[in-house]
Design a protein around this nucleic acid. Sequence first.
RNA 1: GCCCCCUUCGUCUAGCGGUUAGGACGCUGCCCUUUCAAGGCAGAGAUCACGGGUUCGAAUCCCGUAGGGGGCGCCA
Length: 484
Amino acid sequence: MNRVRFAPSPTGHLHIGGARTALFNYLFAKKVGGTFILRIEDTDEDRSTAESVKSIYESMRWLDLAWDEGVMADGTEKGAYGPYVQSVREAQGIYRKYADQLIAEGKAYRCYCTPEELDEVRKKAALEKRPLTYGGRCRNLTEEQKKEFEAQGRKSVVRFRMPDAGYTGWHDLIHKDVKFENKLLTDFVMLKTSGYPTYNFACVVDDHLMEISHVIRGDDHISNTPLQICLYKALGWTMPEFAHLSMILGPDGTRLSKRHGATSVGEYHKQGYLSETMKNYLALLGWSNAESQQIFKKGELEEKFDLKGCQKSPAIFDPVKLDWMNGEYIRLLPKNEMLDLVMPYIKESGLDTSASKVPLIDIVALEQEKCKLLSELPGKIEFFFKDPVYNPEAVEKTLKAPEVPKILNGIKEAYAALPEFKEAPIEAATRAFAKANALKAGQVFHPVRVALSGRAEGPTLFRMIEYIGKEESLKRLDKALTLI
RNA sequence: GCCCCCUUCGUCUAGCGGUUAGGACGCUGCCCUUUCAAGGCAGAGAUCACGGGUUCGAAUCCCGUAGGGGGCGCCA
């Protein structure tokens, strides 16, 4: 049975990198018919917050990355391997039990070093230009020594006793064979003085207990993997397969961070990206199929995803390509879905569309194909609902020509005389006017557009005029004449 | 400093010993067009990081070097 997990630590919003990891785990599970598990790794007592958990759930839901096991949005747990929150598991003594077992077997030991003392060890190691391996100062304490430390009021952590010689390696599903020399690895902390487990320990215990078959995570965890493998061996457990995903970097080639703009999934949502875009784009960051396919229809990624297509080298996040892709997805949207999705942005813009006689869905559809972001739409259609803001450049360029007053007056008369103010008759009347006055079509169209909308670019002209309406159009033509 | 990982157009990538090194974003030009987009077509853009091997033949295999990234916490 294939079981994978996404195990975020709730110390902030879901980031792009985390979302990509979650997505790849999800896609892998879908592809092989496995189980996708969400586990909350809140063993950082200082930084974990309930709001972060909530925010992560929200982002996962927005991205439609449904998990089969774990804590559900309503707070209940689903699955037979729970609890799925590490702080809850800690309270049940799960980690302590295995730590005690390893201590009893001599594979782990209590260490009484203070943070200050460890600092000295690190400084010394740096000074002597040798790797920091902690050195196992407390590895072989006698009972008397332990009692003395305890009498001094020292607190202890539990450290894992690393093998002194040999190598620890594995066959990574993405990186192939990776190995580390044991003597260079440190006796890492398993339990903190607080009794809480550290990441490396909790992760192994839970992955084993939850019967995780494939650990798919960022390659910033490669150096943790040998430590974890040693733990699997010490506990006599079979280890899962490992697949380490390459990192996502910012446009300048450094690790993606706030300096590069939006980094959390929630921010992209707010800016007007579709969740389908995010999934598709993120999937292509470090993964591809043999056809270099760019756009994937709903459900297609789930079918085509394969760890074999994963890239070893880091990928730079390209906001320009993201925008292109979002435009592609927006154009694919049915009119009604577009309206639903863009509604929150219209509301937020403060645009009052209630007085319009034309259904909003039709006006939105007029500019849908031109949006790269949902948030751009309100600005594109606002002149339908309120007085146009005349763009000075457009006014200068197209309304200042000598023949314009004559044109706008003539068009006004022509429109006033129209019995039916619809796209086709408006176009006919406009073209007839141009012809009658020996003007090129464009010579008339452009000033009319600017006069009615205030700008040089916009929707298809005669439909636009129809939607503005007869009365309002005549009013705006008058207004425009005063600007010349 | 030590350890590990990585290296094909500006960017995301295909490639798995013999290709005119393919696609996508972006860029340039043309077409379409009332505008802006979209779309169509064409084009520029990669001596496959560099240096050695192996081989009849290397982007593809091996070894070095350089550059980039990650890790070296009682953070995950």
